[in-house]
Amino acid sequence: MGPFVARRLLQMVPVLLGVSILTFALTNLLPGDPARAAAGRHANAEQLEAVRDRLGLDRPLPVQYAMYMGRLLQGDLGTSLTSKQAVAEELRLFFPATLELLLATMVIAVSVGIPLGVFTATRRGSWADRAFLGFSYFGVGMPVFFMALLLQIVFAGWLRVLPIAGRLGLETVPPPTFTGMYTVDALLVGQWTTLLDALRHLLLPALTLAMAGTSEVARITRRSMLQALDQEYVRTARAKGFPERTVWLRHALPNALLPTTTVIGLQVAFLLGGTVLIENLFSWGGLGTYAWTGIFRMDIPVIMGITLIATTVYLIVNLGVDLVYARLDPRIRYE
């Protein structure tokens, strides 16, 4: 396992380099004055000059890139045009809320999607299977921002059972900060009412985001279960007289989970995009809301900061997926 992890980490280096070159190119090479992009529309000539000097915009491009890399490695992602705060600092503040939302979404997608996929595969062609296939079109085709509106109308507007906005009720005092995720922090100090309130607020945005992921995970699990159930070893297992449940769960499922793992990793990329689309609607004070205001004000340093952090998260998740893969499938490790 050790050499595999090392090799996999080494493979990330050129990709990370490429990612930084692309973001550098986006901010610095496109038509328009990068100094103006960094200083804002209302900067005067003196401020522009100062920014030009600080970013080294009069130097040759490779030097500029080296300076950019140097700043990135020191964790300097530039300054927000609107708040005048360091982007890295603001990202650190907003990140936990989004991480909480992502984790909750993944828990729903995996814990509903995998059993649903297994269930429908083992009852292929039944009404439940067909109903699920119909529903999965709904889950995959529904624009996530529209899904958010629908759920808000139903649960918050008509049924009035769930809060529509925010991470906690107005009367609830946030728990002491350890991780910045309210549910986890409340759990750590044992504030049960706060935990319950945070969970209630988490439910609607997480359900919204989980809709597409759950459908996708279930579809892939169903398909690969069906393929696995066609295999010779399943026939062998059945011939040996194992109960059907054992054949499904102990023989077919572990093999079927490989494609599911890939899909879960890919889903994280879509979720990161999804948070940008829905966080603002739910007044969820995370990266998505931060991105939304950044777009609204065309705050390029903020948008680039979010791009970099989202890409880093995605790369880490993919690394995790590959490690899980190597665990599930020994052939990969020894390749």
């Binding site: 990709v15 490429g18 986006l26 994280v268 990161l272 995605y314």
Partner: peptide, 22 residues
């Protein structure tokens, strides 16, 4: 390797960044 780099970004986020810069 260039395609690797493009695929390393979460799709909507990359589109958003390019669109915002343009």
């Amino acid at each position: 390797r260039t395609t690797d780099v493009f695929l390393a970004f979460p799709p909507l986020i990359l589109a958003l960044a390019i669109n915002a810069v343009l």
